[in-house]
Each structure stands twice: as C-alpha cells, then as structure tokens.
Computed example of a mutant assay.
Amino acid sequence: MKLNFKKSGSGEPLIILHGLFGSADNWFSIAKELEKDFTLYLVDQRNHGDSPQSADWNYEVMADDIKELMDGEGLEKANLMGHSMGGKTVMKFGFKYPEKVNKLIVADIAPRFYPVHHQRILEGLNAIPINELKSRKEADDILSTYIKIPGIRQFLLKSLGRNESGGFMWKINLPVITEKIDNVGEEIVSDKTFDKPTLFMGGENSDYITEQDKEDISKMFPNSHVIFIKNAGHWLHAEQPAAVVETVRAFLR
C-alpha cells in the first residue's frame, strides 16, 4: 500500500509513525526541530489520515507498508521511530527487515500483549451520525457524553474531515478499526533477536512500560536501553516535546 507521508529536512532519513486514531500531523511540532538534522518522513499509517483504507489491518501488513515506502523513496536504510501502535509497527518492521534499519526508537509501548481499552472511545466515535452531521460542535457534543477530557476529544476529532460534497467523513477507517481493535494490542514475537541499536522511550507517568517489560525488552532487543521522559504520560511527544527532541537527537547521533 502506498502510504501518504510528508517529507522535510535534510540528512540521515528518519521515518516517524503515529499511534492509534492519530496521523502524521501529531508530530509536526517535533518535526520542526528534527528536520534541522534529518530527512523526515511523517507517515499516515493505513486506515489513518490521508493514507488508503483497507480491511487488512495488522502489524504484518503495516510493516510491509513501510518497506514499500522505503523502496519507493530509494531508501536502503533508515532510522525508524513509532509511538504506541506505531511503536509496535516499527518493532515488527525491525524483526522482519533488520537490514533496512539503522536505529529504532519505540515511544511508550512494549512488545507484550495489551488488552483492549479503547471501547469507550469507539462507542463515542460510532455514535456520531457522520452522514447527517452538521458541525464539528455537534460531533464534540455527542463525543463529550463518552469522553469527558476536552483534549482527548480534540485529538480524536482531528480525524473528522470533509468529503467532496462538503459533508463530513472519517479519515480513519472506523468500521475496520472497530471490528479489528484486538489487533492493536497483539504481542510482537520473533524467534530472533533484533540486534541494532534500539531506544525505548517511555513516559515517567505512563504505565505502558513496566519493570517486567524491561526484562522482556532486553531479551528481544539486546542492544537496547529504556529511558523515561520526566513529567510525561503516554503522549510524551505532546507533553514534553523539547525533552523528546533532545533524547532523539542524542540517541541518533
């Protein structure tokens, strides 16, 4: 699948993948700093943003999408960074195509299985009558009965776009994501280790990477280390962008 991406900057290539319900736009503030040192590829993963939609949606095909992107851009190797779902995509890519990776950065996710915890979000999004929707405020009002935190609603409604006739449409493939949400939490497994330099960058206030995870990470990624960004939760790149930029630069250099 040919993914939509935004390319900027110059230098060694760095491919950045967003998380569930997100898009390349989530990384714009980070990109403005990192593009001074790297050629950035901010990618919309399949079923998100402006990339094509498909009924096939798992880490196997998402890793293959990145391979196709790199081949299309003539990239023999690149650094890859992914947040949450995107982190699992880059892990899968690393195990499947290790020869294509220089360094790997995984933001606030571990290889283990995660139980589904997005049911309320999906209920809220599916409650919005997309074909009859009159305004973004109407969508926000409906979503507010399911999601109380305005910042989360604002993030989710970034996936609300306009169609050719002027009506509203989802830029995410909501039916497929709803049906196959279990795939997001699936464990990343391999009968081999990934030996390239790898950074697991967690949020200090997040519980996505635990002490047990650190043991498993060291076995699967023997050339890795785990650090935690202070005063940050799961959305570490939004909460502490300067610290994330500094950490990424230091690791890749």
Rank of each mutant, 00 (worst) to 15 (best):
D25M: 10
K192Y: 05
E211P: 00
D216C: 03
A242C: 00
K67P: 00
D140Q: 14
L17P: 02
N102K: 15
K92A: 11
S54T: 09
L3R: 15
K134C: 02
E132Y: 13
E138P: 00
K7Y: 02
G19S: 06
L69G: 04
L125S: 03
Y208K: 13
E132T: 15
M85R: 08
E35L: 03
H118M: 14
D44S: 08
P150F: 04
G94L: 05
F5K: 10
K103L: 07
M169R: 15
P52R: 14
Y114P: 01
D71H: 04
E132L: 13
Y114E: 10
L143M: 13
Y208L: 05
G203P: 02
S224I: 07
K36A: 13
L252H: 06
N79E: 09
G124T: 07
N223K: 15
G82S: 09
N183Y: 11
W27S: 06
F228K: 14
E215W: 01
G74Q: 08
S218D: 04
E73A: 07
A24R: 14
P222E: 12
A63N: 09
G94R: 12
S51D: 01
M91P: 03
N47F: 05
F95S: 12
S29Q: 13
F251W: 05
F28G: 00
N26T: 04
W57H: 15
K214D: 03
G233S: 14
E68P: 00
M81S: 12
H18P: 00
D141H: 01
K137D: 04
G87L: 10
F228T: 09
K7W: 05
I130M: 03
F251Q: 06
N173T: 02
W235N: 10
R46H: 07
N4H: 15
V90W: 08
H225F: 12
R46F: 11
W170H: 01
M220T: 01
K196W: 01
K2H: 13
Y41A: 04
V245Y: 02
P150W: 09
P175I: 05
K180R: 13
S135I: 10
F155L: 11
H225N: 14
K137R: 14
I109Q: 12
G233I: 06
F194A: 05
W235R: 10
G233V: 08
S206P: 00
M1S: 07
G11C: 02
Y41F: 10
K230S: 11
S218N: 15
L236D: 03
I121H: 04
E211L: 12
K180W: 05
T210C: 10
S190I: 11
E138V: 01
V176F: 07
L20T: 07
N163S: 05
R253M: 08
V61M: 02
E239I: 02
V226Q: 09
R136A: 12
E68N: 11
V43G: 03
I149M: 08
D216W: 06
P52Q: 11
Y114F: 13
G82Y: 11
E132F: 10
A243S: 10
E179A: 14
R46V: 02
D50R: 15
N205S: 03
P129A: 12
L20S: 08
